[in-house]
Design a binder for these strands. Structure first.
Length: 114
DNA sequence: TCCGTGACCAGAA
DNA sequence: ATTCTGGCCACGG
């Protein structure tokens, strides 16, 4: 039961990722509090297709900016297609300007702090 | 209950 | 620079 909350928390945070932006497992895990549990975030993404909620897992990539989980989609090309459709350029499963398209959940909080 | 696996990350050789 | 190993947590059999 508690573990399900983790998935829910991850889905909620991932769902907050704006279009044209991508996030990393580590950032999400760090924001939620699952330190070192970046793998758990990825596992949650794997189960995201099971969740009724639409989770933009295609906007979640690893810290290298590589679409590691593209192979887990219904179609491996879906992830890249979706990201490109939102303005994210990808080459060889590598996100271009990853540092610029990278969106950190805590970054949003900083804006409110100002 | 125990073992193996995994859409990861960081450090070391 | 690249390659490998160890560690983290959750789930399935």
């Amino acid at each position: 039961m508690e573990s399900q909350d983790i998935f829910n928390a991850i889905y909620d945070l991932v769902c907050l990722i704006p279009e044209g932006r991508v996030s990393t497992y580590g950032a999400i895990a760090n924001c939620i509090g699952v330190k070192g549990g970046a793998r758990v975030v990825g596992y949650a993404m794997n189960a995201s297709h099971k969740s009724d909620r639409k989770v933009p897992a295609h906007r979640v990539v690893n810290r290298k900016g590589v679409l590691t989980g593209k192979h887990h989609f219904n179609q491996p090309e879906t992830m890249q297609e979706m990201l490109e459709a939102e303005g994210v350029k990808i080459i060889e499963d590598q996100v271009l300007n990853f540092q610029e398209v990278f969106w950190d959940p805590m970054d949003s909080f900083d804006k409110y702090l100002t």
